[in-house]
Design a protein around this nucleic acid. Structure first.
Length: 903
DNA sequence: ACTTCGACTTGCACGAATCTTT
DNA sequence: AAAGATTCGTGCAAGTCGAAGT
């Protein structure tokens, strides 16, 4: 397994060409292992070219934006922070490397983008336009055309795809909400036009419209995508539930450091599985091989395979070809370099234990954490029954935390006040004058707070800058860690300040005092030979020091709100440790692609199993696959009561004859999920059975929990768990949409395509955001402008009429005479104005559509960056148009992917 | 077979930084 | 230059999931 084509390894190593970042690899066994791992996995799975090979090297170095420096740093562990330059971002960074050629944007083909913002904005605008159009484009009836292939997979074909749309939006929150989803709804049924297109449009289209198509076959694409897509769903956050008793769990003693951990062997995690996977996978593949269905193949590919009819397709192919060839060249060059770096090679090959579930690092040096400053008394008194009250510093500190939240929604929540009072009154003591929170008037403190805020705002920019620098100076040493000789950014080195707990939704513990964390609460994890960080607070000391290299955390403390939980300090997302696991996550999801067909067939079969547990597992898996639901672990009573798939309650699902299901529940972060979906009849029937004889608050899947579900999934594919489906569905959707819908056009248009795909994924995953406070104001402002323009238009038309008759234009609003224009000129103006109006209307629509959709979450967590990078390379879109600075750093490992990469 | 630990990923909100518009 | 809008970065809450404990 391990051996990958040598060539590959060699290649990516460092290319001079433009494309790749200059790479240095660090010879770290760990990474090499992983690298190997990945390669194995890849191999196992039939992957097409993904540029994975060299990636490791490059990303390693690039990892936190520090590029070439890493090597240097190695030598000097204690080094001070060097300026961080991301090779990706700045060409200059490449100094150390041998490379001569000018480095452009490291990401190969990308052209240097100049100002992102401008572009992107434009893109956005355009995007909006396009969006509208596209959506309108008729999507074929889900049924008709297509898909013969589906047949192969019978089970799949069988399933219905349409979803109804009615997505209500957030229940409580947004009443208006429904608007956005309309676009799609409208026109879906359009007739199908080209056969080619058959390619399934993204699900969303189908779904939306279709509510009904039942029996028709689905596109296979559907199969891959979650039904959910129909945009309708989502609700906005709801705030509504409550109940639940709170009980605090007692804390348990921390385990004190056993230095043995270091050696302690945790079980191998992924790595093992990966190996295993490989074999299984192969088997599966073999099976498949004969059938020729492409189900699992991305649509676009299939298209290619079969008959590319349309010009677009062909052109794309050509492009791709070009790209490829160039990349190959590049690779060759790389190979030369590679040799130089024998270490790298070695390391790559070495470490058979790709599994490395255990050892995460060999050496780890860092400076610990920084604490928030001590509380500063302000001396402002609150009023109790109208009289000012003296408080001790501790009492005042907590009172201030509460006062400051005066204008938040928490103040309307009795639970919040109750919890706050419980904790604060304890501090006040039994005989304190203050006996009733309702008689407290925190206004003076609140006002003081506002003033302070104002003062800060009013500071001159020099002052602000000075303060910032001051802060930076203090924090600098905590910002970096040296992991196996490479300087990496630390994610959260600041200890959380004390405050009032702000739980989401109806959290039973909201308002409780989150006490100040002291050094004696903190356990540090650091390399054996590294100096132990000095405790920043004089006279105090760390709770414990560990040297556990099987974990990645640098420090942790117990959560004061829930002492049995931990708060960890980890490396930043740009670190190679994080990058590595990110990559593994996507590789696993890609592997699912190879198994998905069989998995779907299996659960489809089990919809009617006599064994209830089996049936429940089948239906649950179906929902997770189709709707991208989360697993749904069991929760304690002292948490907000939200659910996931396994914890759905009978009342969360409503059966709507003949075969639709309406979901309505609060998911993670108490975000409402509302979606009505058409499902296959067996599923519909099974849900009905699971509900019978139960009350609304009973578990729908009473025989199920996440561990059973995951145990079952693992039998189907090594390492498979419920969350993999989310990653898979998100990434495959992006990949398919991008490949299907990207057309020739300028960069801005392409960016629009990307954003549309991104939006689709966000909808599938139900990623929401709260509506900005100024949203409605913004909308009405736009409406106003449009009306104004329409007025202008009317006038122009009148003038045009007059001009045609040889009359002068009417006077303008101020009574002044307007310039005499020729009819042609007027017509031109009219056209321009019309265009402007249309554009504004589209902008408005898009804005409305996206007002509750959060695009960022999927970009950060669900979309394989290699899809994006490869697409950008293929279509000559500067990567910076899609990824901002932090994403570029986070996805450094994906930057040298082959342009042909497909998820 | 469960429950509880423990570690790590995912997710939304908010404030700061930037960019746009007035 | 101020005001408004958007994007970015941070904070920290809330999930997932494997493994240890009982």
């Amino acid at each position: 397994m391990a051996v990958e084509a040598p060539a590959k390894h060699v290649f990516d190593f460092d290319d001079d060409d433009d494309d790749g970042p200059v790479v240095f690899k660090r010879n770290n066994t760990l990474s090499s292992k992983q690298n190997q791992l990945n390669s194995e996995v890849k191999k196992a799975s039939s992957q097409r070219s993904d540029g994975h090979s060299g990636s490791l090297a490059s990303y390693v170095q690039a990892s936190n934006g520090q590029s070439s420096n890493s090597q240097k740093n190695k030598a000097i562990p204690s080094s001070k922070s060097l300026p961080v330059r991301s090779p990706i971002l700045s060409p200059k960074a490449s100094t150390s490397s041998a490379r001569t050629s000018p480095v452009k944007s490291p990401v190969a083909n990308f052209k240097t983008p100049a100002s992102l913002n401008d572009h992107s904005k434009q893109a956005l605008k355009q995007h909006k336009c396009n969006v509208v159009k596209e959506e309108k484009s008729p999507i074929k009836g889900a049924t008709e055309t297509n898909s013969d292939d589906d047949d192969d997979l019978q089970p799949l074909s069988a399933r219905l795809k349409g979803i109804s749309n009615q997505g209500t939006k957030g229940a409580s929150t947004s009443s208006t909400s429904q608007s956005h989803r309309l676009v799609p709804k409208t026109e879906i049924k359009g007739s199908t036009k080209d056969p080619d297109d058959e390619a399934p449009l993204p699900v969303r289209f189908n779904m939306k419209s279709s509510a009904g198509t039942s029996s028709s076959k689905l596109y296979d694409s559907d199969e891959k995508k979650p039904l959910a897509s129909n945009g309708e769903q989502n609700g906005s956050t709801v705030k509504g539930k409550q109940e639940k008793s709170s009980m605090l769990s007692g804390k348990r003693p921390l385990d004190k450091g056993n230095s043995l951990d270091q050696s302690s062997a945790k079980k191998p995690k992924i790595s093992d599985t990966s190996t295993a996977m490989k074999s299984k996978q192969l088997a599966v593949k073999a099976e498949k091989a004969d059938e020729d269905d492409d189900d699992d193949i991305p649509i676009s590919q299939r298209i290619k395979k079969s008959t590319p009819t349309n010009s677009k397709t062909s052109s794309m192919k050509q492009k791709a070809a070009k790209v490829v060839s160039s990349s190959l060249k590049k690779l060759n060059r790389k190979s030369k370099k590679e040799f130089k770096n024998s270490k790298y090679i070695k390391s790559t090959k070495v470490s058979p234990s790709s599994g490395d579930g255990q050892k995460k690092w060999s050496t780890l040096v860092h400076n610990g954490v920084i604490f928030p400053p001590p509380y500063k008394l302000h001396g402002i008194k609150l009023l109790y029954d109208g009289r000012p009250i003296d408080l001790t510093p501790e009492q005042e500190e907590v009172a201030t935390m509460f006062a400051v939240m005066k204008d938040t929604d928490y103040m309307n929540k009795p639970q919040f006040k109750k919890n706050f009072w419980e904790d604060w009154s304890k501090l006040l003591g039994k005989n304190h004058t203050i006996k009733d929170l309702d008689k407290c008037d925190f206004t003076p403190i609140y006002e003081w707070h506002l003033q302070e805020k104002e003062k800060k705002k009013q500071m001159s920019s020099e002052e602000k800058k000075a303060l910032k620098e001051e802060k930076l100076k203090q924090e600098e040493k905590y910002m970096w860690a040296i992991v196996d000789g490479v300087r990496e950014k630390v994610g959260n080195f600041r200890v959380e300040p004390p405050g009032l707990f702000r739980g989401r939704g109806e959290h039973p513990k909201m308002g409780k005092l989150k006490k100040r964390i002291r050094p004696s609460d903190i356990t540090i994890n650091i390399g054996k030979n590294a100096p132990i960080p000095e405790c920043p607070i004089p006279g105090e000391s760390w709770k414990d020091i560990k040297h556990d290299n099987t974990v990645t955390w640098l420090a942790f403390w117990n959560d004061p709100i829930n002492p049995k939980e931990f708060k960890y300090v980890f490396l930043a997302a740009s670190s190679s440790l994080k990058g590595q696991s990110d990559k593994e996550k996507y590789e696993k999801a890609r592997m699912l692609k190879e198994y998905i067909r069989n998995i779907r067939a299996a659960y489809t079969k089990d919809f009617t199993s006599k064994d209830v547990t089996k049936r429940q597992i089948a239906v649950a898996t179906y929902l997770i696959d189709k709707l991208a639901l989360r697993a749904g672990n069991d929760k304690d009573d002292d948490e907000a009561d939200t659910v996931g798939c396994c914890t759905l309650k009978v009342g969360n699902v409503e059966c709507i004859p003949p075969n639709k299901l309406k979901f309505d529940f609060l998911g993670k972060d108490s975000i409402q999920y509302v979606n009505t979906v058409e499902v296959e009849l067996p599923v519909y029937n099974a849900i009905g059975q699971f509900q019978t004889g139960k009350s609304k608050s009973d578990d729908l899947f009473d025989k199920l929990d996440t561990s059973k579900l995951n145990a079952h999934l693992k039998e189907l594919m090594p390492g498979l768990t419920a969350k993999v489906f989310r990653t898979y569905n998100a990434s495959i959707t992006l990949d398919e949409m991008l490949n299907k819908e990207t057309k020739d056009g300028d960069v801005a248009e392409k960016v629009v395509i990307y954003q549309r795909a991104n939006k689709e994924v966000a909808i599938i995953c139900n990623h929401q955001r709260s509506i900005s406070k100024s949203h409605s104001a913004q909308m009405s402002r736009l409406t106003e402008k449009i009306t104004e323009l329409k007025g202008v238009l009317k006038e122009l038309k009148i003038d045009l009429d007059r001009a045609k008759k040889g009359k002068p234009p009417l006077k303008d609003a101020d009574g002044k005479q307007k310039r005499n224009l020729t009819p042609e000129a007027l017509e031109k103006k009219i056209a321009q104005t019309n265009a402007k109006i249309e554009k504004m209307e589209r902008d408005m629509q898009t804005k409305e559509d996206l007002k509750t959709v959060a695009l960022g979450t999927s970009k950060i967590n669900y979309l394989d960056p290699r899809i994006t990078v490869a697409w950008c390379k293929r279509h000559e879109v500067p990567i910076e148009k899609i990824f901002n600075k932090s994403l570029l750093a986070k996805f450094a490992w994906a930057m040298d992917v082959d342009p042909d990469f497909r998820f």
